[in-house]
Design a binder for these strands. Structure first.
Lengths: 149, 149
DNA sequence: TCTTTGTCTAGTAATCTAATAGACAATATA
DNA sequence: TATATTGTCTATTAGATTACTAGACAAAGA
C-alpha cells in the first residue's frame, strides 16, 4: 500500500510540474488545490527538498519550485524516497535487500520467485513513469473531457 | 509490503501442498519446518480454515490438510484473505474499491492511472500463480540444485 | 519594523503488526 | 474410564507506524 504521505508527495510534485512556468508556488496554494493538510504537506515538502527534488525560498515572495526537470523524476523515485522499497518482500528488493529471518534457503524459496516477478513489474512501471509523462496524461485526459462534454 | 502473516500463510499452505499425500499434518511440524512461531501459526491456520482453504481434525492423530486442490488456490487469493487488497491504492482495487477522500476528480487523476497499471500487473501475476505452480517450481529448483552439486 | 513566507522540534491519538499466555474441547488409545 | 495429544478460543501486549497537529523560530521583502 502506498502511504498517504507518498501520495501527497506525488500530488504536490505534479502540481509543481503543471505550474513550473509560474516560478515559486506557496505551500498553502498546493494544500488548497490538492486538499492536502497543510502542516502535513509542509513536512513532506521538506523531505522532498532534503532529497534534492525541490528548491525553496522563504520569506515574503517565497515558495517552492522543482529543482529538477520533471522528465528526470520518476514515480518510483518519489515512492522509494517516502515509503522505502517497492518490493513486496525485502529479500527481492534491489536497493533495500534484506534476508528473511525465517527463510531456510533463499535460492529455492518459491514465494521469493513470485514476489520477484511482482517487484520487477512494479519497478519497471514506476521507474519508467516520469512526472513529465503524468503531466502529458493529464493534458490528454482534460482534452478528451472537453471534447466529450 | 506483504505482512509476515501472509507470508507464513503461504509457507504453511505450500508445506501442506508438498505433503498432501501424507494426510494430516501437525501444526508443530509446519511450525518447526518452516520456522514459524507456533502460536502465531495456529491463528493463521484458523483463518485459512474459516476461509475454506483448510480442513482440520482435532485430538490425537489430528492435524491440518488442504481442503482444495492446490491448483485451485492462487497466491493472490491467499494474500487478499490475509492482507486485503493487492492494489497499492484503494481507488484502483476491484474487490475493495474505495474513493480517495481528497481526490477532486478520479477520472483525470494521473496517479490513479499509474497505480492501476501496477495493480493490474500485480494481480495478473498473483492470481495466475497457483500453489501447484509453486510446488513445480520447487521440485525443478531442487532438481537443478542436485545436478549442480 | 511588520508581514509573509518557510523551518524546526515536539508531541500524539489511533491503528496495525507480530506475536504470547493460558484455559478449554475433542479425539484416540491404553 | 483415564490420559495424552491434538486443535480452538479468548484475551492481552509491546512496539512500530501512520497521519496528523501545535507552536516557536528564522529569513526575506516592503
Amino acid at each position: 500500500m502506498l502511504s498517504k504521505k507518498a501520495k501527497y508527495a506525488l500530488k504536490a510534485l505534479l502540481y509543481l510540474t503543471k505550474n513550473k512556468e509560474k516560478g515559486l508556488t506557496l505551500i498553502s496554494e498546493i494544500s488548497n488545490s490538492e486538499r492536502i493538510p497543510k502542516k502535513f504537506l509542509e513536512s513532506i515538502l521538506v523531505d522532498l527538498k532534503t532529497n534534492g527534488l525541490l528548491h525553496s525560498i522563504r520569506g515574503k515572495k517565497g515558495g517552492y519550485q522543482l529543482a529538477k526537470d520533471p522528465s528526470q523524476i520518476s514515480v518510483g523515485n518519489v515512492i522509494r524516497m517516502i515509503d522505502g522499497p517497492l518490493a513486496p518482500i525485502p529479500c527481492v528488493s534491489h536497493l533495500y535487500y534484506r534476508k528473511c529471518d525465517e527463510c531456510v534457503d533463499e535460492i529455492t524459496c518459491e514465494i521469493r520467485i513470485v514476489m520477484k516477478k511482482v517487484r520487477d513489474s512494479t519497478a519497471s512501471i514506476l521507474d519508467g513513469t516520469m512526472l513529465s509523462d503524468l503531466e502529458k496524461i493529464n493534458t490528454a485526459l482534460n482534452q478528451e473531457f472537453k471534447i466529450n462534454s
